[in-house]
């Protein structure tokens, strides 16, 4: 693949269709600037700021843009609220739709056949493979990203974090907790 991709890049560069410096910049952006720490900041803000939380659930796209995150593969974002009664989980069974501006590029498992085939039919079984066991009475809502709407799960704030700063809370927010296949870290996890 290395040779094939290099060959095509050479052809496209020689034709003047691409500027390799722009390619470098695209790669650098998704390797270093756009990733799940962005989403963690959004979630932590929603945990500490009730007004922000209300704006986020009313219309997530502008609320997220307040923190500077917007654009490609996040043009229309909906925030999903986890509660003791309802757990939300996101999948794209048809391809790999994922909210890039807040979570970055999706991990391999999210794009894989096992996750895409089973998240809709056996969400509890999939969660168990991620080490997440919810009470049997908890309703699981799976969101199949079939349009350009991108879904961001806002997990519940862990117990024992009263008075924590937004920055410290953001450290508890994992990528998987914002997809719905994980839960945030606990204060004890952070101490490890």
């Amino acid at each position: 693949m290395q040779l094939r991709v290099r060959a095509l890049e050479t052809v496209l560069t020689e034709k003047g269709y691409v500027d390799p410096a722009a390619l470098d910049l695209l790669i650098e952006t998704y390797e270093t600037k756009i990733g799940p720490r962005n989403g963690a900041r959004v979630v932590a803000r929603a945990w500490v700021d009730a007004d922000y939380r209300a704006r986020l659930f009313k219309d997530a796209t502008p609320a997220i843009a307040e923190l500077g995150y917007a654009g490609r593969q996040g043009e229309h974002i909906v925030a999903l609220e986890n509660t003791p009664e309802v757990h939300n989980m996101v999948v794209c069974t048809l391809c790999s739709c994922y909210p890039w501006p807040v979570l970055g590029l999706p991990p391999v498992w999210y794009k894989s056949a096992p996750y895409r085939s089973r998240a809709v039919a056996d969400p509890r079984g999939v969660l168990a493979e991620f080490g997440v066991t919810l009470p049997p009475e908890t309703e699981i809502r799976v969101w199949d990203s079939t349009s350009e709407i991108r879904y961001l799960v806002v997990p519940m704030r862990p117990a024992g974090t009263e008075g924590w700063s937004e920055e410290k809370l953001a450290e508890l927010v994992t990528r998987d907790s914002m997809i719905g296949t994980g839960l945030p870290k606990s204060p004890a996890d952070l101490a490890k």
């Binding site: 039919a121 056996d122 009475e137 699981i140 799976v142 199949d144 990203s145």
Partner: peptide, 10 residues
Amino acid sequence: GDPRSSVSID
């Protein structure tokens, strides 16, 4: 199917 689960599509 899991009676305590649902799937939303757009």
